[in-house]
Amino acid sequence: MSKALSSIKPGQLVTVCCIQDSELKPKLMEMGLIAGKEVRVLFRAPFGDPIAIDVHGYVLSLRLDEAGLIQVNETIGSEVFA
């Protein structure tokens, strides 16, 4: 069952499944968010929006509606950082 990246809690490791068709899709992919990529949600801004994720060694921030375009699968057994 895939979920939107915007609903993932900080600390969790997820795998990108697919991105909704939109103007932003090629841009997100160019930033390295392609299917099969492992990303970790790092932290959220004070009002819960935007969020910051770790994409293989660099930190990317996205607004919630941008993160909502990205469907991810939870990586099984991923430990949650406090």
């Binding site: 103007e23 932003l24 841009k27 997100l28 930033m31 935007p50 910051a52 660099y58 930190v59 990317l60 921030s61 996205l62 607004r63 941008e66």
Partner: peptide, 11 residues
């Protein structure tokens, strides 16, 4: 253009 963030937080 639609406004978006997609901003890198550099180290």
């Amino acid at each position: 253009e639609k406004g978006f963030l997609l901003l890198e937080l550099p180290s």
